[in-house]
Write a protein that binds this DNA or RNA. Structure first.
Lengths: 340, 340
DNA sequence: GACTGGCACTCGCTACAGTCGAGTGCCAGG
DNA sequence: CCTGGCACTCGACTGTAGCGAGTGCCAGTC
């Protein structure tokens, strides 16, 4: 389709102005604010073409133009270069993440940092258990028929579950079990554990049979079935910036969606190495979020990925800036994790 | 001061109608909807007195009356009886809480349940470490100079911290340390531990000195200084019910306040045994929440209190219903905790 | 052939006047 | 002390008019 360079320039100018002012932009204002080197009339002709192709639209017959989702998409794909972060931003990131004492702390600081820098809603997934390995399993006797199982993953995550045993158990038995499960499961990817757990049940000494069977059930639940993905969220107040102009006046559906962990996971959890995803408006699968855009990426120590993070905001967002920030924060978090 | 019974009846009627309809209520509508046994004119006279005393006010000269914060306060203190829960609600509570597998699960289910039943924003504090005892301390060797310290509290909370040792340590030393700290600290209230930890440092065998000193620092941080209070939140989408009429149109300050854990803790964390607090509008210390009311109470196994929970909504809320629900949920949660 | 200036047209926004009606305060009478 | 009646207030709504930003189109120019 005949989109020559100038038409693309016009589209870029429209997106930039609209993001900045939040008002439909007209041909005259455009030539004033940008050096396009042509007259408003020419721009109008270009706009007509852009509108025909579905990149922009007019909210009302007598108003300026506004980018469509498709327009933003083209902008993101071809018209924007990533803004480098300012030194101040870099410093902010470093200062924020240094001094985190444990995983909870890292995640909390990260999500707040992201929300603050992008001035949008930030979402950070805790390192996924599915992508973790077992570092250590601990059995803590609570009573003769109750144990607490604590699983420590290499990503720093810690999960615990209470185990109700069918028969009493001695301290020595607990020691045996502890050694046994650590020998067999320690260092293994969580995903690989089910057959190993099964094997344990089969070969354990007869006296420990019932206890081990119960323990195995809980182990499997903890290690794979529950697959509890945790999520941290911050910056919901940023949804109220821009008056009620974005989101056609109702935050309702968005707040509802943000309360569902499943939905959040869908948003930021499906990541591939070295990619950064931008989902714009209608491209979102979740109906409640059709008025928003999501910028997300994976993070992890080195080149591996252990979880996702991202931000959510109005389709009218500063894509270049947001993309740069999300990418930078993900990288820093990965570095911090690598140090553990 | 002459607030006779009928004037109180009028106030009650105004509160009930306004809560139900969200519209200023006039004298005529009042006598129609309630059996007051007098004419609108009489009611008008009573209203004039109530207004003079500051219990109600007129949004506009030619509009009906609306309760003031003071009016709600009087209503809550003297005019409302607690609504008993419906059997359906009781069943909902039980069904919701049964089947929770661990503390996280209990807290999450509780907060969602509260939000759903009251149709408001729900806040639940995790069992406070300050009110917990040490059940078990675990040391997991990560490398020769790194340990992971895991603290399991009797309330089910689990905290972990990484310890960087100044000098390498052997597996046997770890075993010794583990036994030692559990002997001395196990079963103790977290608040009582600092002198005990200090004593440990002084008397430990010389070879373990440096390790124990480092460990002590982290122990103190974990047990008392950090005092990390965790909070769960749900139902923020409920803030958008009632159009933008409540909260004079801006959710901003409220969402901002809800993001600050410190603020939430202030809201629901300061509880005394067997009390239920209702803070109405201006009575709130936090400026951002002057347009909201908070109903909160403590919960815990038996009669002890380990944390707080509550809901936040517009001053125009169904106080009797909300109070009943908050109280009931707190009781059920206490029961669930008692079973562990 | 591409760009430009000019011009008529559209239509949302604002201001203003007029009407309506819910609700009030007050007063005289029971 | 309560009641019915009455004049009054004032916000909500409606319809009209003028303004102006912005457009589409067309004829003219480079």
């Amino acid at each position: 389709m005949g989109l020559d360079d100038r038409k693309l320039d016009v589209l870029r100018a429209i997106v930039e102005d609209y993001v900045a002012t939040q008002e439909p932009v007209g041909s005259k204002a455009l030539v004033e604010r940008h050096q396009l080197g042509v007259s408003p009339a020419t721009v109008r002709n270009d706009m007509a073409v852009l509108e025909e192709e579905g990149y922009i639209r007019q909210p009302h017959t007598s108003a300026g133009r506004v980018p469509t989702d498709r327009g933003y998409r083209l902008f993101v794909d071809r018209l924007s270069r990533v803004k480098p972060l300012t030194p101040a931003e870099r410093r902010a990131i470093e200062r924020f993440l240094v001094g985190a004492v444990d995983l909870d702390d890292v995640v909390h600081r990260t999500v707040r940092l992201l929300a603050q820098l992008t001035r949008q809603v930030a979402v950070v997934q805790y390192p996924s258990l599915a992508r973790s390995s077992v570092r250590h399993l601990e059995l803590v006797p609570i009573s003769t028929t109750r144990l607490m199982l604590v699983m420590i993953a290499d990503t720093g995550r810690v999960e615990q579950r209470l185990v109700e045993l069918p028969t009493p158990i001695t301290a020595d038995d607990v020691t045996d079990l502890r050694r046994l499960i650590n020998e067999r499961l320690g260092g293994k990817k969580l995903a690989e554990t089910p057959p190993l757990v099964q094997a344990l049940v089969d070969e354990v000494s007869p006296g420990l049979g019932p206890a081990m069977t119960t323990l195995a059930t809980v182990l499997l639940e903890t290690l794979v079935e529950r697959h509890e993905e945790r999520i941290a969220l911050a910056g919901t107040a940023n949804l109220t910036r821009g008056g009620l102009l974005d989101f056609q006046g109702s935050l309702r559906p968005i707040l509802e969606a943000l309360e569902e962990e499943v939905i959040l996971l869908k948003l930021i959890g499906e990541v591939e190495p070295n990619t950064l995803q931008v989902r714009i408006g209608d491209e979102n699968e979740i109906d409640n979020l059709r008025a928003t855009s999501v910028v997300s990426t994976g993070y992890g120590p080195g080149t591996t990925i252990v979880g996702g993070l991202g931000v959510l905001g109005p389709t009218r967002m500063d894509y270049p800036g947001t993309i740069a920030t999300v990418r930078a924060v993900a990288r820093y978090v990965g570095d911090v994790l690598a140090q553990n």
